[in-house]
Design a protein around this nucleic acid. Sequence first.
DNA 1: AATGAATGAGAGTTCATTCAT
DNA 2: TATGAATGAACTCTCATTCAT
Lengths: 212, 212, 212, 212
Amino acid sequence: MSTISQPMTKGERTRARILVAAERVFAELGFHDASIVKITEAAGVGQGTFYLYFASKIEVFDEVVEDLNRRVRHAMIEASSQAGTRIEAERAGFRAFFEFTAEHPALYRIVRQAEFVSPGALRLHYTRIVEGYRDGLAKAQAAGEVGDIDPEVAAWALMGIGEIVGMRWVLWGPDVAPGGPTSAVPPEVFDQAMTFIERALAPGRTEEEGRS
Amino acid sequence: MSTISQPMTKGERTRARILVAAERVFAELGFHDASIVKITEAAGVGQGTFYLYFASKIEVFDEVVEDLNRRVRHAMIEASSQAGTRIEAERAGFRAFFEFTAEHPALYRIVRQAEFVSPGALRLHYTRIVEGYRDGLAKAQAAGEVGDIDPEVAAWALMGIGEIVGMRWVLWGPDVAPGGPTSAVPPEVFDQAMTFIERALAPGRTEEEGRS
Amino acid sequence: MSTISQPMTKGERTRARILVAAERVFAELGFHDASIVKITEAAGVGQGTFYLYFASKIEVFDEVVEDLNRRVRHAMIEASSQAGTRIEAERAGFRAFFEFTAEHPALYRIVRQAEFVSPGALRLHYTRIVEGYRDGLAKAQAAGEVGDIDPEVAAWALMGIGEIVGMRWVLWGPDVAPGGPTSAVPPEVFDQAMTFIERALAPGRTEEEGRS
Amino acid sequence: MSTISQPMTKGERTRARILVAAERVFAELGFHDASIVKITEAAGVGQGTFYLYFASKIEVFDEVVEDLNRRVRHAMIEASSQAGTRIEAERAGFRAFFEFTAEHPALYRIVRQAEFVSPGALRLHYTRIVEGYRDGLAKAQAAGEVGDIDPEVAAWALMGIGEIVGMRWVLWGPDVAPGGPTSAVPPEVFDQAMTFIERALAPGRTEEEGRS
DNA sequence: AATGAATGAGAGTTCATTCAT
DNA sequence: TATGAATGAACTCTCATTCAT
């Protein structure tokens, strides 16, 4: 995920192990049912050790959210940067988002807890992703590839679509109960969702469309 | 909100008071920090009284979610049913949704907790609202008022847009910290969001668009 | 069990129903898990009604113990009074005791709770039964049918044998877990227990026996 | 009491203190009125500490019963093993039983609660003691020192006699109210009880006695 | 005579956090 | 650096009892 060049000290390794365990336990049990004992047991360290690296339970939570946010954005940028056209980039970004969700259902399960656990963390998480969309849209708009629409609002709309489609088809699966196995968004759903987005963003004929 | 004409019995009134208090406390503190003591104090009844009407904390939670769901759908249907055209109906429905959100921020704050609290409740909540969108879209599509798109996917997309725009502009307000005062979606944001949606759903030019 | 001659008033009937229900519920659940609600539900009356007839939960308990005590003594006296010889009377009395236990396992389960629930009730219960044994033994001793032994001590010994054999073979059954079905003491066990008692009480040759 | 030679760790000492306190509190108040708070206060530890060593209130109870059982059997075996003749051994065993009872009234008060608290614990307790009696009787019988009687039934009879005499004269004392001070069984009562038992078990004259 | 809604003290249990080792 | 025993406040839930109807 990152380009580890320097060797980790012993302490850093312990810290990293706790962080990984915390993500796993938070994802499985949610914030409140994830006790420090469970996290430290999963990490294979003592309870006291936890407090050598994190000031509180909330602090790990924040860091886990931060971490997930960094990783999902990285995945999206990585994917879309290799695309040729704007539309291809958009599809690649969404596909990366859904894939990340499928591989890390923690993204949802953890992030959606944030509202009450760590005020502001949720907003920060969404805002950062939205900024990526917005900047891309603004640039594309300047190039005439996107219709006349406020990039900020459009970006949030994309965020909402990604979030809900990810929840509906990745997290819940085709017919699966919540918590069950997750898989990627079915191709036809992905296509339909992208069609929806493309039409919303397509340039031209703005005047007529507004009237319909 | 409801059309109950018969007078409530004493027990029903107590139950209703607890339910109202629970919604308030859940919205303010979240599921886990909303203790039974806080709920019963807010309702002005004894702790034991709570258990005369609800079997557990989770049970009230489910009922609060159920209740909010019923009310927001009612508000949306009410609003859109008085509109003339499909587009007007759509705008009215969304406006009602945002207004409800502004008046009952509990909708977000409570519902988003549901994932870990009451598995299935969250899915049920979204699914019910989406069914309304989907049926409306399918009907409009049959009348040629909506482009060629899977109503199911489009309905979930609308749900996502409503949710995230509501969260961003209603719950968080223009520049306000989470938990702060809420107001309606600013008119220009509302217009932009509706433009986004209208373009996505507009009929015509399906063949070319589909190729992208 | 008793010779009801006068018709009961409505109140008396209600009271009796509560008492019967209480015995059943106490026997099944024990004193502490037998709630007033469960008793009143079993009796088919309201909770408040209970307190019209009994001052407290402990009071019904005492009365239930009292009632059981009266009935078991009645059964034993009834049975032994129809016997010809002393030994036959003894066997008949024990048999009645075991039969009562088998039909009313409540006797054990309730009485053994008494120690902490209602101090003195347990002692009173045992003492009353023992008095019956003791008087019988004293009388038989005067007639030369019982050896030279303190009737008080011997009576308590009989009580202990009856209690433990009843628990072992009636309450627990041949191989059954506690709480399971109960039946009478197996004939061979009954015979052995009676043999044990007969030898202990048999008159004559006191001097030699003591030396063995 | 035990032959542990290795020093206890800190944790073991805490555990032992809780166990001792639990025995005391259970004996004084009974299972239900013995709250965790009372036990931990008596032990001088925090409430949470209790759950580091015992999974539940019932678990300590079981262990206390187990512990008492082990100790009383140890005392009885110890005492009777030093006796010369069978009869002396019997007397020594019973005497040890009564002495233990006098010093640890908890034996009764706790064990008799077991029926509803921990099904099976009561049966196990009695069964273990009875097994000791039974094996002793069987051996003596083989040596011709005990009459022709089923050792199992006879052993349970002894158990019953010990239990009830202990309760009557040790727990309740000569004229004392339950819960009051306890002392040993008066010598004349002890002698009479032993006489009762000796006659019941004495060999010889089996044929005539059996006819009764 | 009868009800059952209401109460609140108290139960068992959990867990984030501290700190002596 | 690492530990895990210890803590106590806070939690959800129960139930004997009261009292207005």
